[in-house]
Structure formats: structure tokens, C-alpha cells
Computed example of a mutant assay.
Amino acid sequence: MDALRRGWVGLALFFAALVLMPILVFGYHSQEPRSGPTPAASPAPDGRPSRSGPGAMPTPSSTMSVAPFTFAGIHQGETISGFRIIRVETTGYAGPLTYVLNGPTGPYRRDLPGPPYLFTPHPGGWQTSEVPDGLYTLTAILVGAGNTQISISFTVSNGAGTIG
């Protein structure tokens, strides 16, 4: 009890953490070889390095393919309005998928544990009248397939609002 009051136990735990932390971090990073760049490590479209670290949103990059997958319900360069049902169709993949929408509203992220891969910021789909007009990029990331991703760009043109 006397040692506890003097702080020796706390000090011993602190030094043990200092010694063990580098060993644990090195062991974690050397467990799995990386097969390629992750979305946070890929450069932004204008050539600048993208943000990385906790909470960083992936930036759109070129289409890579591990499991075949495509967008349905929207086309590259399309101008959309009203209620839309957008989904990703995959062949041979049933793991987690992350949607990231970038545009005038800032990044919006939606994580799905498995199919169906519907982009649903609103019940049943996406009410585009709830976001400002402008150019958007929707990225779909197959989380369980090495963060393979596809992106599509389109324009929303129907009135201003916010994702709800």
C-alpha cells in the first residue's frame, strides 16, 4: 500500500508501456504485407498528396479491379435531380463496402456491412433535392478486397439543401 501511495506502481506501468509500445506497433505493421496503396495514400486528382490518418476520407482514384463491380442507377457525367436509387453491383464479393460522397457538402461517408449495396443517405435511396447543386464524386470502396475502389462523377441540379 505504501508503494502505491508513492506512485511506484504507476511509474513501473508507465515504463513498461514505453518499452512495450514500439514492439507492439512494429509487430502490428509487419503482420500483413500490403498489396498496394490504400485510398489515404493515393495522390489527389490535382497531384497533391492526400490527407492521411484517423478520420481521413479517401480521395477518388483510378478504377482498380479485384472483384468486378460497377455503379447502377447513375452514369458518368450525368445530371441528376429528385429521388435516385444508386447501388453497386458486384460479382463474387459479399463483404463490407464504404461509400464516400464528395462535393459542395463536404465528405459524406456511409459504411455497409454487406449487400445490397444501396447508397441511402435518405430512406430507400437519395433525395438529391436535399443537397446543394454542384459537381459530386461518389466513391465505392470494397473494404474486404484490399480497399479496391471505383468512382463516378455527376452533377446535381435541382435546388439547395443539406444531407439529412
Rank of each mutant, 00 (worst) to 15 (best):
F26Q: 15
F26R: 15
F26K: 14
F26W: 11
F26S: 15
F26G: 08
G27Q: 11
G27T: 09
Y28S: 12
Y28W: 11
H29W: 13
S30G: 06
S30K: 12
S30H: 08
S30Q: 14
Q31S: 13
Q31A: 14
Q31H: 09
Q31F: 09
E32V: 14
E32I: 13
P33F: 04
P33L: 07
P33Q: 10
P33M: 05
P33H: 08
S35R: 15
S35D: 09
S35A: 11
G36L: 02
G36R: 02
G36N: 02
G36I: 01
G36Y: 00
P37M: 09
T38R: 09
T38Q: 07
P39A: 05
P39K: 00
A40E: 12
A40M: 09
A41W: 00
A41M: 09
P43N: 07
P43R: 04
A44T: 15
A44S: 14
A44I: 09
A44V: 10
A44G: 11
A44H: 14
A44C: 13
P45W: 06
P45H: 04
P45Y: 05
P45E: 02
D46C: 07
D46F: 05
G47P: 04
G47S: 06
G47Q: 04
R48C: 04
P49F: 01
P49G: 01
S50T: 13
S50R: 07
R51V: 10
R51M: 11
R51Y: 08
R51G: 14
S52P: 01
S52M: 12
S52Y: 09
G53W: 00
G53Q: 00
G53D: 01
G53Y: 00
P54C: 05
P54R: 04
P54L: 08
P54K: 04
P54F: 09
G55T: 02
A56F: 01
A56D: 02
A56I: 00
A56T: 03
A56S: 15
M57H: 08
M57G: 06
P58L: 04
P58V: 02
P58C: 07
P58A: 13
T59P: 01
T59D: 04
T59V: 15
T59Q: 11
T59I: 14
P60G: 05
P60A: 14
S61N: 10
S61L: 08
S62I: 11
S62N: 13
S62T: 13
T63W: 12
T63P: 06
T63M: 15
T63Q: 14
M64E: 14
M64A: 15
M64C: 08
S65Y: 07
V66T: 10
P68K: 12
P68G: 07
P68L: 10
P68Q: 11
F69G: 01
F69I: 03
F69A: 05
T70E: 13
T70L: 12
F71D: 00
F71E: 03
F71H: 06
A72C: 04
A72I: 12
A72G: 08
A72K: 13
A72Q: 14
G73M: 05
G73P: 05
G73F: 02
G73A: 08
G73W: 02
G73Q: 03
G73C: 07
I74A: 04
I74G: 01
